[in-house]
Design a protein around this nucleic acid. Structure first.
Length: 449
RNA sequence: GCCGCUGUAGCUUAGUGGUGGAGCGAUGGACUGUUAAUCCAUAGGCCGCCGGUUCAAAUCCGGUCAGCGGCGCCA
């Protein structure tokens, strides 16, 4: 049953003149009643198969001719170098059969016309038929790019001896102050009829608990946000790559963030440049993101810049997307924004000892309007400071007792960041919408298929 | 939570008050090398749903449902 010949190997010339067995799905067909061209698709590409009635016989010819788009087939034939074939290689078939048929009364719904006006985007029809849309060239390409991004993140951290570490997805309280959490009934009982758990928004608090044990740790895991965001960069379930290091400050964490993102860009150039080109992505742009340093700008400078441009913004306000967009429109590479006002950020950010009006934090803003891809910084790490900050925010202490304990037993300076993996995929692939880079996107209005 | 836009055949769409058209796909036929093949024919429509105006509604009005886009929030 195992498959040994892949379409990409046929095009690479690995089987020229050989008899091979091909397994795959019908991509397109055309022809006459004497010669039939079946373009076969597998996970590595497409190849033209030539079926002549005189070679395969009447019965086989009629069977293969009846195979509709996305029928699965096995074909035997000889690999032939022929300039008339798309890609330069074709397979002249000697026999073959349909494995899984497609009923003519219910043909494969993802047609050329279904994708025609979508512009790589996401029509209602394509979203409803996502499970079938995955088989198309565009989605397959996106998923391959996504795989390389995940691989690059694992390689980056493992090469530096980071330990991959998993936190629970059911949690008792919020990480972000005031953000909306998904509630899940969690074994309510007589004592506690309303008992609930929440889906995690971040691995961070649990990573900090393991920081004194592992010192360098990372994860790639889903995070959940119950905000009804309707934008091209939000999902309710997204993949979060997070890291935490002991004995590191804001600048150290930022250095990792920069290296990681540049590493992802260069990995894509190595492994997926064909795919990027097929999506129409400008390779020079991706090279620029891989090769150039990412500047750091303090919050105060950003505010001054914006005010100088005539934007109405006051010191102390967080930078929303509309401001980010104005700020980043002239950026050629991602920029870090650092030292936000303490009042704009949650309690776990450490106040700057040089000026406690600010916290030691950073956001990494991607160019081309893709916005924030990293949020991170140095953590509040003494018991005194963390209690002070929790209280000043009005956050209850109880759910965070385990977190405060980290400071009570040998606290050390430490920090980390979270990177939105889907956002990075979307940005580097040049996607129109973050939904394009995840197989089954979840947003506030859609949980199916 | 707020603002905007769109629902016509399986898909993409034309149709501003008077018997709903096309392309793709499907089916049948023709064609010996096609490149999204081509040509001929056939089938396929509660014009999202409910109500109203009118002699007459896909078309005008009200409501409703669904979807999409944007803002706030963030990765």
């Amino acid at each position: 049953m195992t498959k040994s010949v892949w379409v990409s190997d046929v095009h690479d010339g690995a089987h020229d003149g050989e008899n091979v067995e091909l397994k795959g799905w019908v991509y397109r067909t055309r022809g006459s009643n004497k010669i039939w061209f079946l373009v076969l698709r597998d996970s590595t590409g497409i190849v033209q198969c030539v079926i002549k009635k005189s070679d395969v016989g009447e019965d086989c010819f009629e069977e293969l001719k009846s195979a509709l788009i996305e029928s699965s087939v096995t074909l035997f034939g000889k690999v032939n170098v022929d300039e008339r074939a798309p890609g330069g290689h074709e397979v002249v078939i000697s026999s073959g059969k349909i494995i899984g048929e497609v009923n003519p009364e219910n043909p494969f719904p993802i047609t050329e016309s279904a994708m025609e006006s979508s512009d790589g985007g996401e029509t209602e029809f394509l979203l409803d038929n996502r499970h079938l849309y995955l088989r198309t060239n565009r989605m397959t390409t996106m998923l391959k790019i996504r795989s390389s991004v995940f691989g690059a993140i694992h390689s980056y951290f493992r090469n530096l001896d980071f330990i991959e570490y998993q936190a629970p997805n059911f949690v008792a309280g919020a990480v972000e102050g005031g953000s909306t959490l998904f509630e899940v009934p969690y074994f309510p009982n007589e004592k506690n009829p309303e008992r609930k758990a929440y889906l995690t928004q971040s691995w961070q608090l649990y990573a900090e608990a393991a920081m004194p044990a592992l010192e360098r740790l990372y994860t790639i895991a889903p995070s959940f946000r119950a905000e009804k965001s309707r934008t091209r960069r939000h999902l309710t379930e997204f993949w979060h790559a997070e890291m935490e290091i002991a004995w590191g400050g804001n600048a150290d964490v930022m250095a990792h963030g920069e290296s990681l993102v540049r590493n992802i860009a260069s990995t894509l150039l190595d492994e997926r440049s064909d795919e990027l080109i097929s999506l129409g992505r400008d390779i020079d742009l991706v090279s620029r993101y891989a090769d150039n340093p990412y500047p750091r700008i303090r919050y105060d400078e950003a505010i001054e810049t914006l005010q100088g441009m005539g934007v109405e913004i006051e010191w102390g306000q967080d930078l929303d997307y509309s401001k980010e967009k104005i700020l980043t429109q002239d950026f050629e590479v991602p920029h870090f924004l650092t030292h936000y006002p303490r009042i704009a950020k949650p309690f776990y950010h450490r106040p700057d000892p040089d000026d406690p009006k600010y916290v030691l934090c950073h956001d990494l803003l991607a160019p081309e309007g893709y916005g924030e891809i990293i949020g991170g910084g140095e953590r509040t790490w003494t018991e005194k400071e963390i209690l002070e900050r929790i209280d000043e925010e009005g956050t209850p202490r109880e759910p965070y007792e385990f977190y405060i304990d980290v400071r009570r037993f040998g606290g050390v300076p430490h920090g980390g960041f979270g990177l939105g993996v889907d956002r990075v995929c979307s940005w580097l692939a040049g996607a129109e919408h973050i939904r394009e880079v995840i197989p089954f996107p979840r947003d506030s209005r859609r949980v199916t298929p």
